[in-house]
């Protein structure tokens, strides 16, 4: 199976380990991943709050190029990119007036858009196209003793209906980790917002939100938090020093991308999965896994 791949800006810098681990995991599972040629920023929530038509138009450029490549559905790992691209596609399909404006803008660059390629999150792609059982059958190692708090964040599960998961209590990632041998951790804050860019624009509020997530993960005895979004990963990992000192207790915990434990189970090399990029590293003993 082949997919068009939209990494997004974060996966080139702060989220580089997400990029590395996705590429590794898709290769290990025999799925083709074809980066969208010369993709541009999706616009994120920031552009959306400045200019409406422009924000849809720049997002649509990526959809148009992916369509031209003809490699199938678009895989967007960053929750914000996923949401923005999927939302753009839906708005353009349901609002012809908006579509004609965007078409005209795209024509200025010689592009056309038929909205043929669906926009999907890699977690959903793996779980629906391959299935958890098929993935577990390919595992070479067991994640025994690992206790992952599966954190879905907000933008991936919420507004777009392409992801047929329970919006209030999704289980896809929990089920996947459990099938790979990890111990289940009940994490009630799994879809609570991490604050996203509030961490920059309104830090106290951002710290509050992240602190409640870290406290919950600790209280539930998690050994790591597993995320699906570079923004969540960044907020949850990079502010642990600050939050620990403001909370008056040690709240440090490794924060991984779901593709990293999955990659470890599939027998990928920890370096290739980008584990060296994390500031709160997974302990060495956690990398020693029993063979299946």
């Amino acid at each position: 199976m082949d997919y068009a791949y939209y990494p997004g800006c974060s996966l080139e810098s702060t989220g580089v380990s997400y990029h590395k681990s996705i590429v590794e995991v898709f290769r290990a599972l025999g799925l083709g991943l074809h980066e969208i040629e010369d993709w541009n920023c999706c616009g994120a929530t920031a552009y959306m709050s400045v200019k409406e038509t422009v924000s849809f138009a720049i997002s649509a450029r990526n959809l148009a190029i992916a369509e031209r490549m003809g490699k199938g559905d678009i895989v967007a790992p960053c929750s914000a990119c996923y949401l923005v691209l999927a939302k753009t596609r839906r708005f353009l399909m349901e609002r012809p007036e908006l579509k004609s404006k965007v078409d005209e803008a795209l024509a200025a660059a010689g592009l056309t858009l038929k909205c043929k390629c669906a926009v999907r999150h890699p977690l959903e792609v793996l779980v629906s196209d391959l299935g958890i059982e098929a993935i577990a059958a390919k595992a070479k190692r067991r994640l025994t003793g690992h206790r992952y708090a599966c954190y879905y964040g907000c933008q991936m599960v919420r507004p777009e209906r392409y992801f047929e998961e329970d919006r209030e209590f999704p289980m896809a990632m929990d089920d996947l980790m459990a099938a790979l041998g990890a111990e289940e951790v009940e994490f009630p804050l799994k879809v609570r917002c991490c604050g996203a860019s509030q961490m920059v624009t309104n830090e106290e509020v951002g710290l509050d939100l992240v602190q409640s997530l870290l406290e919950c993960a600790h209280a539930r005895g998690a050994s790591a938090i597993v995320t699906t979004c570079p923004m969540c990963q960044y907020n949850l990992e990079l502010y642990q020093d600050k939050i620990s000192s403001r909370a008056g207790k040690d709240l440090h915990i490794p924060v991984l991308y779901f593709t990293q434990p999955l990659g470890l189970a599939l027998g990928c090399d920890p370096q290739a999965l980008g584990l060296q990029h994390h500031t709160v590293p997974l302990p060495q003993e956690a990398l020693i896994l029993e063979e299946v």
């Binding site: 541009n40 038509t53 422009v54 720049i58 404006k101 592009l111």
Partner: peptide, 9 residues
Amino acid sequence: DLKRIIEKA
């Protein structure tokens, strides 16, 4: 190209 798209939009 992107600038052209933005200008037009």
